[in-house]
Design a protein around this nucleic acid. Structure first.
Lengths: 110, 110
DNA sequence: TAATTAGATTGCAATATTACGATAAAGGTT
DNA sequence: AACCTTTATCGTAATATTGCAATCTAATTA
């Protein structure tokens, strides 16, 4: 054991979990926020921005990319990373929907 | 190595990462959705609902509780778990804010 | 073409997570 | 009191994640 039993859950649940997991590390949250802040989606100075070694940052970028939260395009020698809106929209609407439902129920217990 | 370097990131980034991490497993997403679905915040039939053994579910519940996403109250012999709205509101507004900013920028690259 | 630069990949050590059987703890029931 | 029910905890095995030094790859410049 040790591996997540994804096959027992719905695709939607797995999808949300994958996105959430990708944001489940402060470095990756910091990367997302940095990409938000910088207008021109600057590339690998993310490494200079973060308190982590280059291979570590590269790994975090890869995970964000695999989850679909960012996308990268080759820019000559460098690579330009930026936020993929689709994934964020998915998260946003998921939580908006939950909050909405909770609002309507208005704490009927605990 | 192996441990996350939380001390290098802001409290906010760590807070979001903690919440996201807690939802970074399909079983925990499923628990949240079940708690949403069941009006009377029924307790330990979560175990019956999930395809995991009781100790495993108990562990997932503990993680959700530590992250502040759910709260539990003793109900005689059993325990009544339900969603803690505050944490979900935090997530909801975080993603709403990001989506809003992205909307205004409207993809200036990649 | 050689040297440089940007970024990914490899390999490895340290630590964390996932899952569960066995068992404990606490309240309810007979 | 003896027993059952519900949930938590312990111990442990399997696997995943985090982080980095060293190295590799590909484009850039000298």
């Amino acid at each position: 054991m040790g591996a997540t039993k994804t096959e027992h859950f719905t695709d939607k649940q797995n999808a949300i979990a994958t996105l959430a997991k990708a944001l489940g590390h402060p470095a990756r949250v910091a990367i997302m926020e940095y990409l938000m802040k910088v207008d021109t989606c600057i590339c690998g100075d993310i490494v200079n921005e973060l308190p982590l070694a280059q291979p570590t940052v590269s790994q975090h970028l890869k995970e964000l990319k695999n989850a679909g939260l960012i996308k990268g395009s080759i820019e000559g020698n460098a690579i330009c990373y930026c936020i993929d809106e689709k994934a964020l929209t998915k998260l946003q609407s998921y939580f908006a929907n939950i909050s909405d439902k909770l609002e309507k129920k208005k704490s009927n217990c605990c």
